[in-house]
Every structure is written in structure tokens, then in C-alpha cells.
């Protein structure tokens, strides 16, 4: 099968005006090939100056994350046939949110620095038992799902928060963080939650779902971040804007069936937090101009009793689940 790989290339050693370019490689590959197979064919038989990382070919080493047709993916898990666009072209680029070293190779230094930030090692409390720790198999099974993370960087590549805020710890590191908080053998869940509760931590995710979408291993980093939020609130970390926003959001819906945007702002930032509230004034004025200003008096929706019943039921279930 004839395909064209449209590869975004970069060579830092070339003269400045010719450092980055897009190159088309036409290759003949078997029908069941992956993008990685095709790139290897280019590298081996067409152009050995094309740099990329790869090793296992089986989605376990995490080396070959790249952007394929605009989204982060493992080259070895991307079947050519499913990706062919017009004229049998597949677009290949390096991962996003990380500086490019050469061609498809990015510098993952920051990725690993963020992993280090979450203290990624087990911290048991008290003396080690002589034999293994006794732990329920369900808990271990659950952790296997998170340990499935191969640190490929796909989630970080496509994280929309990291695009604008380099300070965010990011989906991979927070999923790793969850792995320790959820480990019954770890004795420092509260300290960890305190650490992840800080700026750049769990409350900075905007829930855009990109990381869940692109993760090749089903780790669902965003869901892990949401679980960390719940646990942080349960552990008493309720002072952050994020936690207060979540609380205000829920209580508004419980009270009236919809979000009261006025009280949401006030309850999140606090009634006397004048600098923050004043800072929002321009936004309020612009909203007013566009006739998007929320009403001053917020009325409950019809059938609010039903909404409240749902709330109580959910709360009961949550309580029961936590024992």
C-alpha cells in the first residue's frame, strides 16, 4: 500500500532559515503496518537522518509518542489504514508542550521534573513488616490500571492547560501521584494531598478530556485528578479556590437547580476578597454589554424538590461507598 508520511522535521544544526520544514516520504508498506513501522522503513531505507525514539513496537516502552494527524499517540499503536486522509497522507509531528531536540525527538526534561515534584515513591509509615504488606487484591487491581502508565508523554503533549500554564504539574505526574495516594501501603496520603493541593496542582485541570482521549493505555489521567480532588476535600483541604468553587457550584445547584453565577464568584473568592472581586469587574462589564450578565435574583427551577432528592441520594451513596 502506497502512503505518504508528511513529517514535520527540525534540525538545530541547519542554518536558521532552514531549520524546520515539512517533508513528504512516500513509502510502500504492508496493509497492517503501523505509523511506527512506516517511519522505521523511512529511516532504514530512505533517510537515516530522520530521528525518532522507538524500541518495543508493542506499546509498553513508551518511546514513540508523537502527534499523528494532529493528536498525540504512540506510533506503534497507530494503524496506518485507520489514519489515511486525502491522497493517503498521514501527518506526523513531534509531541506538543515540549521543546523539540531534532525531528520527532522532544526534550522530556520538564516532564521528568514534574514527575519528581510529586515525590513518586512509596512512603510507608512505621516499620516494614517481615513478609509482604497485607492489602486487598481489589486495591492492587485498581492500582494496576494506573501503573499501566508507560510515561510516554502523550497526555502532556496535548494538555490544554500546559499550553498556557507551564506551572501546572500536568496529567502524567498527577496520575502518578494518585497511584500513591490510592495505595493502601502508603502512609502519607494527607501530606501528599496537601502538596498536590497547591498552585499548579489538582485544581488547575480544566477537565477538557484531552488526556483521557489520547492516553494509549487507558490510564485516564483526568479521572485520577478528579479522584484526588475528592480526596483532598475529604482530607480537609477546603480552602483552595478550586475546592470552594466545587463546593459553591454543588450547593448552588442543590439550592436552585441551576448555577447562580453571582454567588459562585462570591463564594469561591470570599465576600471580602475585594482585589479578586474587583479584578472580575471588567469581565462583568463586558458580559453586561453582551447581555450575558447573570440575573441579580436567582430563582429555583421548577421541580427543585426532585433535584434535591437526587442530591441527597447521591450524598448517601457516596457516604456508603466511603464506609
Amino acid at each position: 500500500m502506497q502512503i505518504t508520511l508528511r513529517v514535520k522535521r527540525y534540525n538545530p544544526e541547519a542554518p536558521e532559515e532552514r531549520r524546520s520544514w515539512t517533508q513528504d516520504y512516500k513509502v510502500d508498506v504492508p496493509e497492517d503496518s503501523t505509523v511506527l513501522d512506516s517511519l522505521i522503513q523511512v529511516r532504514e531505507y530512505v533517510d537515516d537522518s530522520l530521528s525518532l525514539r522507538c524500541s518495543c513496537r508493542g506499546a509498553i516502552c513508551g518511546s514513540c509518542a508523537m502527534r499523528v494527524n494532529g493528536h498525540a499517540a504512540l506510533g506503534c499503536k497507530s494503524k496506518v489504514q485507520k489514519l489515511l486522509g486525502k491522497d493517503n497522507v498521514i501527518a506526523v509531528e513531534p509531541m506538543g508542550n515540549q521543546p523539540v531536540i531534532k525531528d520527532l525527538v522532544v526534550d522530556m526534561t520538564v516532564f521528568w521534573d514534574k514527575i519528581r515534584q510529586v515525590q513518586p515513591w512509596l512512603q510507608p509509615q512505621g516499620p516494614e513488616p517481615e513478609a509482604e504488606y497485607v492489602a486487598p487484591n481489589e486495591a492492587m487491581q485498581h492500582l494496576v490500571g494506573v501503573m499501566g502508565c508507560i510515561m510516554c508523554g502523550a497526555c502532556v503533549s496535548d494538555c490544554t492547560v500546559l499550553e498556557v500554564d507551564k506551572n501546572f504539574i500536568g496529567p502524567a505526574a498527577l496520575a502518578k501521584a494518585y497511584r500513591f495516594v490510592a495505595d493502601p501501603r502508603d502512609g502519607h496520603a494527607k501530606d501528599r494531598l496537601g502538596l498536590y493541593n497547591k498552585a499548579g496542582g489538582i485544581w488547575d485541570c480544566t477537565r477538557c478530556f484531552e488526556c483521557v482521549q489520547v492516553c494509549p493505555k487507558g490510564v485516564a489521567p483526568m479521572d485520577r485528578i478528579m479522584a484526588l480532588r475528592d480526596q483532598a476535600i475529604d482530607a480537609g483541604f477546603i480552602g483552595s479556590y478550586g475546592a470552594r468553587h466545587a463546593e459553591a457550584f454543588a450547593s448552588s445547584v442543590e439550592h436552585s437547580g441551576t448555577v447562580n453565577e453571582m454567588s459562585l464568584v462570591v463564594n469561591t473568592f470570599g465576600m471580602f476578597n475585594l482585589p479578586k472581586l474587583l479584578g472580575l469587574l471588567p469581565l462583568a462589564i463586558r458580559a453586561g454589554y453582551k447581555r450575558k450578565m447573570p440575573p441579580l435574583f436567582h430563582k429555583p427551577v421548577e421541580g427543585i424538590a426532585g433535584v434535591r432528592r437526587i442530591f441527597h441520594k447521591a450524598e448517601e451513596q457516596q457516604k456508603a461507598a466511603r464506609g
Binding site: 515513591w121 512509596l122 510507608p124 516494614e128 513478609a131 509482604e132 504488606y133 497485607v134 492489602a135 486487598p136 487484591n137 492492587m140 487491581q141 492500582l143 494496576v144 501503573m147 495505595d183 501501603r185
Partner: peptide, 20 residues
């Protein structure tokens, strides 16, 4: 194996919570 378990390897368990 016990050392690895103590380091944090999430070995599968039996119903008794011990290594399977």
C-alpha cells in the same frame, strides 16, 4: 520478591490479601 513488594510493586494478591 518481598523487597520488591516493600518498594511498591503492586503484586496481585489472593483473597487473604497476601501475594498470589
Amino acid at each position: 520478591v518481598i523487597e520488591l513488594e516493600h518498594m511498591g510493586v503492586v503484586f496481585s494478591r489472593g483473597p487473604d490479601g497476601l501475594l498470589g
